[in-house]
Nucleic acid binder design. Structure first.
Lengths: 211, 211
DNA sequence: TAGATTGTTAATCGATTAACAATC
DNA sequence: TAGATTGTTAATCGATTAACAATC
């Protein structure tokens, strides 16, 4: 498990998929797996699987294959570190924010929701996925006190433009971005995962109608 | 607007993002835009913008730039065809399915939800995003009668494995797949858009903890 | 005409795949 | 040992970027 000089984004994006399939294999009681078998499940080549794993060092045994539990441990550690959950806030507690918040809280993906914020006075004070919805005015004082690391953006484009700069200033390092505004252009120093459901739907439509 | 010999997937995936920014430009009353300006908004290069557009033929005017409304029309037609909505069914009307269904119905992305299915008798008969939730047993007869083209999979992995083959057999051509099962491996003939929120969250975690 | 900006070809870059030596 | 499968280097492929001629 030596160095990872600079792992490319495509490799990083494949890690969770490996992880899921390894969880399944482990649940089925499988002890070993080969790169070619994993490749088939993943819909890729054995070469890519081995290349991917070797970005992080030798997880396998030559001539034998990979131990499922070793792989699961190693990739799990890559994705979740030592298991400490990242303190996370959610901006925008509407329909989308509500669905997303329960996703963060329910599925254990390495995050801990510690607050939600909204400008709508009707929502402020309500409970959502285990936290109370606060007014946006409390954002600054809350961040200074609790030092959240990740912000989940579930607001419309215009609000996202306004609030993202403030969040970066308040020390947010990563964004799970559902807004239709790509803040990584203005804030290249933070890590952004854009989740544009509409885009994904539209490109499916293109592929069905054309090609 | 001549041929599109074979547009690569990365280009296709960028079309919705272009579309969104063009909608904004149009709403702001902008009439013209240059490849370099679009590139800045998109976080890419002018070269890529021009290459992308030229996959579909010449949308621009040399020396001048691109007319916003022409681009919007052309890309809109690429994404939405002549505007006819794709008949769509949803499988799995739980928490996730509910959130997703309202997304399909509310945002006009080229789809028309015509039915939802679930195995849970408590859900069957209820109204969801304008359609009635039906029992899974009615899937076959419904598909034979109404010929849906797209299926939205909001069921757990195991159910997805079982139901996806049936859906392909019943003529479904495209999947918007929220299940943790990549059916494009077993069904390479259909078009699949995987939306794995957990994966996106996990890879954000990796990038924050490492690199 | 001069300036600007596209359309398009060529060069670069990076990711994927293939090949094979190492080794269990 | 022989067979299998990894680790790793080399070859290929494709996407991005640069360059520049065409032209408005």
């Amino acid at each position: 498990m030596p160095a990872q000089n600079k792992v490319s984004l495509p490799v990083i994006k494949r890690l969770p998929k490996y992880y899921r399939y390894l969880v399944n294999l482990s649940a089925e009681g499988r002890e070993k797996v080969s790169s070619s078998e994993l490749a088939h499940m993943m819909g890729t080549t054995a070469s890519q699987v081995r290349q991917d794993f070797n970005c992080f060092g030798g997880f396998g045994q030559q001539g034998i294959g990979y131990k499922v539990n070793v792989l699961l441990d190693e990739i799990g550690r890559l994705l979740f570190g030592d298991g400490e959950l990242l303190p996370t806030i959610l901006i925008g507690a509407g329909r989308l924010g509500n669905a997303v918040s329960s996703f963060i809280s329910r599925d254990t993906n390495g995050y801990r929701l510690i607050a939600a914020f909204d400008i709508n006075p009707d929502l402020v004070g309500r409970e959502m996925s285990g936290v109370t919805i606060r007014p946006l005015e409390e954002l600054e004082s809350f961040c200074r006190e609790h030092k959240p690391v990740v912000a989940v953006l579930c607001v419309p484009r215009q609000s996202a433009v306004e609030v993202s700069g403030e969040l970066v200033r308040l020390g947010i390092k990563g964004f799970w971005n559902f807004s239709h505004y790509d803040l990584s252009v203005e804030h290249p120093e933070v890590t952004v995962e854009n989740v544009h459901l509409g885009d994904s739907l539209m490109s499916l439509g293109y592929r069905l109608r054309n090609g």
